[in-house]
Design a protein around this nucleic acid. Structure first.
Lengths: 225, 225
DNA sequence: TAATAAATTTAGGATAACCTAAATAAATAA
DNA sequence: TTATTTATTTAGGTTATCCTAAATTTATTA
């Protein structure tokens, strides 16, 4: 049934999943840069993934890649493991949230179904990772979420931070120091018309914070009123 | 310094370590069968490991392989991880002792130094795995042990079980059902001169147990008096 | 000690991924 | 709409690791 289980393939599927979540096919060069490979290698691999029986991706030359149902399932399984492992590393082993991504990227490929089930159970079947990323359920469905990009809020709006990007350790350390963490309440005080900077007042913090759009479009919140 | 970190190499070193612990060099065919490979592949790989700079093994054609100091260190590092991971799976994740070996064989190659340090700390720096195998310290020294093969005991001797072999799940399940586990006290009631079978009385068990030499030479005990 | 058997090595290939660089297609600008 | 730039694919090569089968060495038996 599934002998296509190389770490390499799992990584391709995971990244294709992330790049196609918005509905548009993934393009070769972005995939290559995210995977740390050259575009030529990606072209080759992607056409191989579309030629397996059953195929894992849909691929039209020069037009990009999407996942087949099977490819998507495999991607979600890896993502579930990744986020469960991240949660486990923080909750059980006391990792800081900036150190878990890299380790999870390795572990996600070697861990068994049993390991996955055990840590899920020890953690009480968490629905979100320490960065607020949704963890696919066992049946691979995603927990419902009603989030907006922080960057799209307007002055006066109150919101609760739900999710920050998980893969940049330096950014994560910075966000931690300024108390931008999931479940934190904030109010947008100001939005610059020139550069899109937001001035934020954070729950329990006396100093306001100014964040640029490069960051605020990667942070997701739920609006409070 | 150490770019020789492939999973494959780690596995070779680990198995060479186990086969050379008794002081004799490891031979190609045994290595091959333990690694699930063909002898030709092992010959090739082993000569490559002896040709790296610095070399990881000493290899004399037709005479077998031993580890260099560096190879030994690398092997011990992997073995430390393996046994810590086995302990972790049992103690923290509730695995049964017959299921941990295989999972540890994968995890041992991808886990970071930090992971190793964290689980060691969570477990209170254990010195023995659930099967009683000694866990190398951080400095790679081995905990002192004064054990004998169960198979070499004579009738009337009392002993405490210290170590059982970890890699055969079926055997481990059997040993569990007959209560052959580390720290258990036993008395040898009889030894057959024909087949070497031992009749054992186990602490807290009403039924005596008869074990053949194939098993008893793989179980280690400390003699009580 | 010669003959046979067993273990080991060598030679020639295979495969999964990767790379570089040339060739081609698509997108953009003039 | 043509020319140029950018993105993508293809072709030919590399590496690590494995395999099979032939050749060689060592061990065993008569």
């Amino acid at each position: 049934m599934s002998e296509n289980q190389s770490q390499t393939i799992q990584d391709y599927l995971k990244h294709i999943y992330n790049l196609t979540e918005n509905g548009t096919p993934a393009n070769t060069s972005l995939l290559a840069s995210q995977l740390g490979l050259k575009p030529g290698s990606v072209s080759e691999m992607v056409s191989r993934l579309s030629a397996t029986e059953p195929p894992l991706v849909n691929y039209i030359k020069y037009q990009g890649v999407t996942l087949t149902t099977l490819g998507r399932e495999m991607a979600l399984r890896v993502i579930r493991r990744h986020r469960l492992i991240e949660t486990f590393l923080v909750e059980v082993l006391g990792y800081s949230w900036d150190m878990v991504h890299e380790e999870a990227c390795e572990l996600e490929h070697v861990v068994t179904d049993i390991f996955e089930a055990r840590i899920a159970s020890v953690l009480g079947n968490p629905r979100f990772s320490p960065h607020g990323e949704p963890i696919p359920e066992v049946d691979l469905s995603m927990p419902a979420q009603f989030t907006t990009k922080l960057g799209s809020l307007l002055p006066g709006q109150k919101a609760i931070i739900q999710q920050v990007p998980d893969s940049d350790p330096e950014l994560l350390r910075y966000l931690r120091t300024i108390a931008i963490v999931p479940q934190k309440e904030l109010v947008v005080l100001n939005r610059s018309n020139f550069d899109g900077n937001l001035t934020l007042s954070l729950q329990g913090q006396s100093e306001n914070i100014i964040l640029g759009p490069v960051i605020t479009k990667k942070i997701f919140v739920t609006i409070m009123e």
